[in-house]
Design a protein around this nucleic acid. Sequence first.
DNA 1: CTTGACCTTGCCATGATGGGAAGCCTTATC
DNA 2: GATAAGGCTTCCCATCATGGCAAGGTCAAG
Lengths: 154, 154
Amino acid sequence: MNIGDASKASGVSAKMIRYYEETGLIPAAGRTTSGYRTYGDTDVQILRFIRRSRDLGFSVEKITELLALWRDRSRQSADVKELAHEQIAGLEIRIAEMQAMVQTLSKLAEACCGDHRPECPILEDLGGASDPGAGAPFAAPRPRAGLKGHLPRA
Amino acid sequence: MNIGDASKASGVSAKMIRYYEETGLIPAAGRTTSGYRTYGDTDVQILRFIRRSRDLGFSVEKITELLALWRDRSRQSADVKELAHEQIAGLEIRIAEMQAMVQTLSKLAEACCGDHRPECPILEDLGGASDPGAGAPFAAPRPRAGLKGHLPRA
DNA sequence: CTTGACCTTGCCATGATGGGAAGCCTTATC
DNA sequence: GATAAGGCTTCCCATCATGGCAAGGTCAAG
């Protein structure tokens, strides 16, 4: 099976299959004499494992761990479960952060009459209304939230 | 005021201030004879606007629009409100996607006894349990979800 | 044998951010 | 005035996972 078929069978783009190989997530595929990568059913299964893990938001780095556990017949399911719980925790943090944004935005949007007039509480808030004194343009900066994690594309 | 002070006053790192200038989000700052960038209260106010917008998850591109509206005294508040609603909608989509991941992961984790034994429904699912027939390793790939948006770091 | 579909590698881009190096400037201290 | 410390400048690189494009080799069907 060539890379295109492995891609179709696994749902992982050919580009990403090569990337996973390059970064060591998957072992280097076999090659034909002309240099084409070849894949078997096992390879496709691994790719589907990766694909499904990405769909659940796992980073490639975490998938390395998941794959290692998958291959390890003497694994302890507790270790897998822990990875899952970590993943859930990370997702929930980001969900909470985004929900906070939604709430703030909703309140602001609610306060904005949204007509042809220029008055807008949204812009007023962004412009520093949270510092209404306005006499002190050098107020201390607000502390930054975290939320820098890159969520896998799906 | 030098860039370091503007950074402290706005909560935007010096690095990002230069980046925003380079990409045209903010106008080029004035310079001293020796080449140092100089900032005034207005500049800090703009930076704080940006900072707060980022905190609400707006992309730099969207902030360009927000800033334009902010500067435009003949704006219509409806336009601002629409941007806010778009932002809310985008956030809610990603929240829903992540919640779906959490739910799937929770169910799997719940089914995993999490002890010293290797049996693990989580790995079984990732390994393709969703395709139980297993006789057809070349099943059609699942459709991909979207969720590629990069959420600003906060 | 041609054509079209597929494969290869390599480079570039994304988005927002941090890190670091090399070198100049400013300020404070002695 | 000299020196040290710290701030500023630019430039390049890395992240993370992904897509795009281009130039060229390969394969299979007609």
